[in-house]
Write a protein that binds this DNA or RNA. Structure first.
Lengths: 107, 107
DNA sequence: ATAATGAGTAACTTTTAGGTTACGTAAAGT
DNA sequence: ACTTTACGTAACCTAAAAGTTACTCATTAT
């Protein structure tokens, strides 16, 4: 179960990973603690964690034999950039519409 | 090449589809016009369009034998919701940090 | 009327993400 | 010292996404 290197968009494409991110938004958790919330084997969870780590969504701190996973902002920023681009598209489109309407009102 | 029903996260997981959305942010385009920008067959593009249409990212207007694809906001809104959730997480985390720093400064 | 064009559908192949079990290793418990 | 626990890694399997070619249909052009 070697983890493939996925980009941020592929990371959040998986429902289980999105769920893990939600769980981690409440508290830092170990691999096993996370695995208890899912109907899949621990190695499967382990792989997901690695994928999210590689894409910059989480940081990992080893404490003894445990690995604590914590949310990290980097991965989310890339997503934000994507959304922002299209956000600008909609708002500028809206402004154009406003301009047209104002011109009509003015005449 | 029947198109599978994918959710908004799976839609933007594909680089070609993200590229198509970018192209459509400049102007509405037909299937063929889109296909010219990609190193893949027209049926392949056609399938991507169907997937994005089903997920609410584009609307389609038939003019004669041509299909004009236009960006639609619905799909993006779902993504925005996801981002917003974690955005709140980061800002509230930052506020907690501020509170701690202020308390220290006050003593 | 016939040819050419724009696009959807069907059948098929390939790739790969996501899961499994089996095993190895280091830290903690008894 | 031995056992248990927490995790990673390897080898493997399966399902499905993404691509292809071949075909058909409807619209436009000649």
């Amino acid at each position: 179960m070697t983890a493939p290197a996925l980009d941020v968009f592929q990371v959040i494409a998986d429902p289980s990973r999105r769920q893990m991110l939600h769980l981690l938004s409440n508290e830092s958790m170990t691999i096993n603690a996370l695995a208890e919330n899912f109907d899949m084997s621990r190695p499967a969870v382990s792989k997901h964690i690695k994928i999210m780590y590689n894409a910059g969504f989480i940081s990992i701190t080893d404490i003894g034999r445990e690995r604590y996973c914590t949310l990290k902002q980097d991965g989310f920023n890339e997503l934000q950039d994507f959304i922002n681009y299209f956000d600008k598209f909609w708002t500028s489109k809206l402004k154009k519409l406003e301009t047209i309407l104002n011109n009509k009102a003015g005449k």
